[in-house]
Amino acid sequence: MLTTFRILSFLEGVSYLLILFVTMPLKYIWNNGYPNKVIGMAHGFLFLAYIVMALMMKSRQKWDAKTLGIVLACSIIPFGTFWMDKKYLRHS
């Protein structure tokens, strides 16, 4: 389960960065919204899966409420999931 969550958090982080730095400029600078729809849909699925998996990992990793809050907040901060993986998952 830990490996699955690590992979999921990596993919969620990459999809978020793609939205911020690739598809949003395509949409708003070059008026091409299609990549945003495709990557946005994938990111939405990955984001929800990340939240569910984080909640499932809480008891498995023995996280307190503060740690869970940090792990969940990392999903909305650019590069946050990569930091979270290093801080909370890599040494588990």
Rank of each mutant, 00 (worst) to 15 (best):
G40I: 01
F82W: 11
T23V: 08
Y28V: 00
G69N: 10
L8Q: 07
S15V: 07
Y88R: 01
Q61C: 13
R60S: 08
I7S: 09
I70G: 01
V22W: 15
F5A: 14
M57G: 01
Y28M: 06
M57F: 04
N31T: 10
L46T: 02
N31W: 08
I19R: 11
P35S: 13
I7N: 10
C74A: 13
L11Y: 07
A49V: 01
I7T: 11
I51V: 14
L68Q: 07
Q61G: 08
W63N: 09
G40M: 04
A49I: 01
W30V: 08
L2W: 13
K86G: 08
K87R: 08
Y28P: 02
L18T: 09
W83G: 08
A54N: 02
L55G: 12
I7W: 12
R60L: 11
I29K: 14
G40N: 03
F10K: 07
K86P: 00
L2C: 02
M56I: 12
L68V: 09
L8G: 03
L48H: 03
K87S: 06
V71R: 02
F82L: 05
T81I: 12
I7D: 05
G40K: 02
L18A: 12
A49E: 00
S75D: 02
A42V: 14
A42M: 11
W30Q: 10
L8K: 02
M1P: 03
N31Q: 13
I39R: 06
K87M: 08
S92H: 14
V22M: 10
R60K: 14
I70A: 09
A42D: 05
A73T: 06
L55S: 07
M56H: 11
N36R: 05
I51Q: 08
K62T: 08
R90K: 13
A65I: 06
S92D: 08
Q61V: 06
A42N: 07
F10T: 06
Y28S: 06
I77C: 05
Y88L: 10
Y50R: 06
S9W: 07
E12V: 08
L89F: 15
I39H: 03
G80I: 05
Y34D: 12
N32G: 01
M53N: 06
L46P: 00
I7M: 10
S75Y: 11
I7C: 04
W83L: 06
K62G: 09
I51S: 06
